[in-house]
Design a protein around this nucleic acid. Structure first.
Length: 702
RNA sequence: GGCGCGGUAGCUCAGUUGGUUAGAGCACAGGAUUCAUAACCCUGAGGUCGGGGGUUCAAAUCUCCCCCGCGCUACCA
């Protein structure tokens, strides 16, 4: 194990196109924060950076949806996310944003460095350009007639009618969706990063170098990508929202959002040290003493191989953080690459995938509105159930149980017992520690060991285990009190010294709990310290049985956690279901009306009703069914992508509507002679189009 | 279909250089107790370790086949 001088920790830059939910917290932000708080408590040199990811096509798209500007979108969600993180105790040293000038500059510098080293391949291709809007049109912004099915409103990347994947050049009579004009073909240049040239390096670095210390899910995913073979990837896009490509003749071109987003970590670090050195803090919120710093100290955190770089992300980001971004950094030559990328899997919610757009989610701001005084409860319930090795599941019931039977009954209760007993019997002062009995020695020994257990788990990114080890410390306290029964002894005045010794030790455990809990439950840890009238201590003191001096005056105590009643949980469940129901009509935006066609256009299609004679699953395909259809005029083979919606058995005998004169098309080695018409429901389900009474095979639709 | 990850007690999960009666927390049952938010503490019950073959003195762990979940990927005319 390499010894590092300092650590740079990043948490995935949240995309500023909407609110972020508790699954994101469980995936990246909470574990990252716990890890960093622990390092800080140890006095280690660490910087924790994050920020809003504000580029990419989805931002302008969201602006259209909300009927506003991209700028307004990113401002709105940047502030919302920043505030939520803060309220949840996610303590970044800086929460930056990729729309900042410094980030544009940093991204351009890195792009230019790669360019100047000749590491980017320039490729020119012809793409559609809108003269009036003066921009190249992304595939989605071009419509035209589908060459395959004649649909006049096919998109540049896909015909939604026949499902063909297209490229804009395939479209007949293309038009721009922005101005409606006919776009012209214009040559456009893009810059590609030849990922495949780094396969050897990746194999050495990841497959050999990190076989033991990376999580199996991360390692496996990387291996899968590397083994499958990498392709050159365009690092630029024709778009008017993003970071300008810093080259001549690159008008209207921006950096690919996945090129600039991870650089956001670097920019954030750079911004942090620039602000710290200038004394003008805008985004920086240093969470520890950094001492005097220089503006370019950020380089130490990114370019010194004695720095340990750790990316906390969800599993959807693995390829970017383990393959593409490291290649960028490695190719550049001056940067270090991550030592670990402890990506988590996904957290489901009440039996279904979490999804903001489907309304099946608990957004950070929603939780905070309903439970403004309970950030630690959410942190704890997520921590005990992080999707570390596989997808996990959040339920409100489990949230309640974690709160009631662990935070309240075990943790809060122990703290309260120790404090109340001291108030009642020792005037709220730390009693004198007298002669120790074997049970005291044993509990002190256990106390000394426990922080090491927590630390060991944290060093290995095992947060669930670490959280459990924290709770064990409170259990130790409860058991000690139960075993020594000071409330019984106190009835006999001769035992007062003995009772004092017991409570003295119990209070030392409470003080330790504040240290050990700080990374996990920072708000509660601070409250314990207040109740003990104690300044914050550090991990280096953890395990000590002399944190509180004899005679020390304690503060005012109150309950750390309160029970959550069944009604509160029931209300949340109702709220969740109501939200999902209310989202449905919105989520399924109805496809806009297509352009007018003439009767002649329509008449070209031979649409008729047929009957399915046989149906079987296409071998080696998940989606295709191979059908034999009686069309009245013949019996023919039609392939249809409905295997996820209908079984072969239920298709046999069914009447179907088909386009009988569609040009045959070969798929997976078999020719399909026609196309079955389906209606796609809002949830993506496909349903057959049938006459409402049985008609003869071959009946013409008109 | 291919590739990757996972399938262990009612629930959430530990446990792979193969080795004594497979673990934890929660939930459940019984007991003890009353300082504490009816909490704590003790005891107990509960598992064909997805299924089946194989290697071995010995398999949750290695191997092969199959089933299920998740992700990536191919096929939606």
């Amino acid at each position: 194990m390499k010894a590092f001088k300092r650590t740079t920790v990043t948490a995935a830059l949240p995309y500023a196109n909407g609110p972020k939910h508790i699954g994101h917290l469980a995936g990246a932000y909470i574990p990252a924060d716990v890890y960093v708080r622990y390092l800080r408590s140890q006095g280690r040199d660490v910087v924790f950076v994050c920020g809003s990811d504000e580029h990419g096509t989805a931002i302008p798209n969201q602006a259209v949806k909300e009927n506003t500007t991209p700028r307004a979108i990113i401002d709105k969600y940047h502030v919302q996310m920043r505030d939520c993180f803060q309220k949840l105790g996610i303590a970044f040293d800086i929460y930056h944003r990729t729309s900042e000038a410094l980030h544009h500059q940093t991204s351009q510098e890195i792009f230019l460095a790669l360019f100047n080293k000749g590491l980017l391949n320039e490729e020119v291709s012809e793409q559609y350009y809108d003269d009036e809007a003066k921009l190249f049109l992304a595939d989605r912004y071009i419509v035209g007639t589908c060459p395959k099915c004649g649909n006049p409103n096919a998109y540049g990347d896909q015909c939604e009618k026949c499902g063909s994947s297209l490229s804009p050049r395939d479209l007949i009579n293309p038009r721009s969706t922005i101005t409606g004009n006919v776009p012209v073909l214009r040559e456009t240049k893009h810059w590609y990063l030849p990922l495949e040239q780094y396969e050897g390096w990746l194999k050495e670095w990841i497959l050999k170098g990190h076989a033991d210390d990376w999580k199996t899910n991360v390692y496996g995913q990387c291996k899968s990508w590397i083994d499958a073979g990498l392709q050159p990837r365009a690092m630029t896009r024709d778009l008017n929202w993003g970071i300008k490509v810093p080259l001549p003749d690159a008008e209207g071109k921006v950096l690919y959002v996945w090129f600039d987003a991870p650089i956001g970590y670097i920019s954030a670090t750079r911004a942090f040290f620039e602000e710290m050195s200038s004394g003008k803090l805008v985004y920086a919120q240093p969470q520890r003493k950094f001492g005097p710093v220089a503006a370019d100290d950020w380089k130490k955190y990114w370019q010194d191989d004695e720095t340990k770089l750790v990316h906390f992300i969800g599993k959807d980001n693995i390829v970017f953080h383990c393959i593409i971004f490291p290649i960028m950094l490695h190719a550049h030559g001056e940067f270090i690459v991550p030592d670990n990328v402890p990506a988590n899997e996904f957290m489901n919610l009440e039996g279904d995938k979490m999804s903001t757009s489907r309304g099946w989610s608990i957004e950070m701001h929603e939780y905070l509105e309903d439970f403004p005084d309970k950030p630690d409860v959410l942190r704890y319930s997520l921590l005990t159930n992080l999707p570390e090795t596989k997808d996990s599941e959040f339920t409100w019931k489990d949230f309640q149980t974690r709160n009631n039977s662990e935070l309240v009954n075990i943790f809060g209760n122990f703290v309260n017992r120790a404090l109340v007993l001291t108030q009642k019997n020792f005037n709220n002062q730390v009693p004198v520690k007298g002669a120790l009995q074997p049970i005291d020695e044993a509990v002190i020994a256990a106390l000394r060991e426990q922080p090491g257990r927590i630390a060991e788990a944290l060093e290995q990114y095992r947060f669930r285990e670490a959280t459990a080890a924290l709770m064990d410390l409170a259990r130790l306290g409860n058991k000690y009190l139960a075993d020594t029964e000071p409330w019984k002894l106190v009835k006999n005045e001769g035992n007062l010294e003995r009772v004092g010794t017991i409570l003295h030790i119990a209070l030392q455990i409470v003080a330790n709990l504040a240290i050990a809990a700080e990374p996990f439950l920072p708000f509660s840890a601070a409250r314990i310290n207040e109740m003990l009238n104690l300044k914050t201590s550090h991990w280096t003191d953890a395990g000590s049985d002399t944190l509180l001096a004899e005679g020390h005056e304690l503060g005012v105590s109150s309950l750390l956690f309160e029970k959550i009643e069944d009604e509160v949980i029931a209300r949340q469940l109702e709220k969740l279901h109501a939200k999902k129901a209310s989202m449905n009509p919105v989520a399924h935006t109805v496809t806009p009306l297509k352009n007018e066609v003439t009767f002649d256009d329509f008449a070209k299609l031979d649409i008729r009703v047929g009957r399915v004679l046989t149906a079987e699953k296409m071998p080696k395909s998940d989606k295709l069914l191979k059908l034999t259809v009686d069309t009245g005029v013949d019996k023919r083979t039609v392939l249809s992508g409905i295997a996820k919606h209908y079984t072969p058995e239920e298709m046999v005998g069914k009447q179907v509507t088909l386009i009988a004169n569609l040009a045959p098309r070969k798929m997976m080695g078999i020719e399909s002679q026609g196309m079955i018409l389906m209606a796609e429901d809002g949830d993506g389900k496909l349903r057959l189009l049938q006459p409402n009474e049985v008609v003869m095979p071959g009946a013409v639709v008109s």
